[in-house]
Design a protein around this nucleic acid. Sequence first.
DNA 1: TAATCAAATGCAACACAATTGCATTTGAAT
DNA 2: ATTCAAATGCAATTGTGTTGCATTTGATTA
Lengths: 147, 147
Amino acid sequence: MKQPTNTPNHFEHLLDQHHLKKTAPRLKVLSMMADKETATSQPDLESLMNDVDRVTLYRILNVFEEKGIIHKVFDLNGTANYAICTSNCQEHRHHDEHLHFNCTQCNNVYCLNDLNLPAFDLPPGFKVNGFTLYATGLCPDCSKKQN
Amino acid sequence: MKQPTNTPNHFEHLLDQHHLKKTAPRLKVLSMMADKETATSQPDLESLMNDVDRVTLYRILNVFEEKGIIHKVFDLNGTANYAICTSNCQEHRHHDEHLHFNCTQCNNVYCLNDLNLPAFDLPPGFKVNGFTLYATGLCPDCSKKQN
DNA sequence: TAATCAAATGCAACACAATTGCATTTGAAT
DNA sequence: ATTCAAATGCAATTGTGTTGCATTTGATTA
């Protein structure tokens, strides 16, 4: 029996798990990011959270990232984008070893989790902790519109 | 017979090739970035170029990137880092399909060009233009100091 | 080598992202 | 209901990057 991952109940459970108080701003951030196929940019989040102070949003994003609830990825413009981690993320040790696809047209960042990445080699001396494959190009939507 | 890639002469040639005027600030940017194993962060560049206006630096970095002379990579903090492209880069079409390694200790970004990346698959509909593998962990230097 | 002119630089001002310190509020525990 | 650390809100600041315009400079050509 699978747990639902995008219900208000799940969000409260998530905050409990990480010993974080269940506050309105935090629950709002989670619900804003859920149900989105793509990561949410900081500017988008800020306008979505219009009744919440900017500083509060930054602090929420920071704790969420530290706790492994969300992860951050920078798009082609250097803008921070945030997405809820699907699984395997722990405090101070993310396992977001998936593919980030950044569309050059709509600028959306897709987190393609179900892709298993191939192994790769590093020169001696480098100790890898985590990695992501970052690809750019056209997403399905923009690819269609192109024709 | 191989051409040297980090001499003042080579830099002038590089600017000629891309129809850019050989100016003092531009040559300085190139010499600052050359001979470095790692990419140079924007803040570092700015303090190294202390006699050059900030705006000029930004404009130089932008044309160099457009022309394919350098490429930009964001580190874990979202700070822009710049490195001279080794080869294969053309205007508006970079081929920086190499590994970027970001050390979590010293924050240095290594561009490991000689590594050939494995192939990977994408869900249908995505049209890939370019990609980089972005890894985090400890670089050889920090890895040594750790023990 | 002097004149010319677009290209490049410098300066002032601005826009936006992100942080810090401190006062106030609030969720959870007693 | 009371309490208190945790979380939020507010004011101010720092840092990154951009825009418009005046000035300077490198390459061209006379």
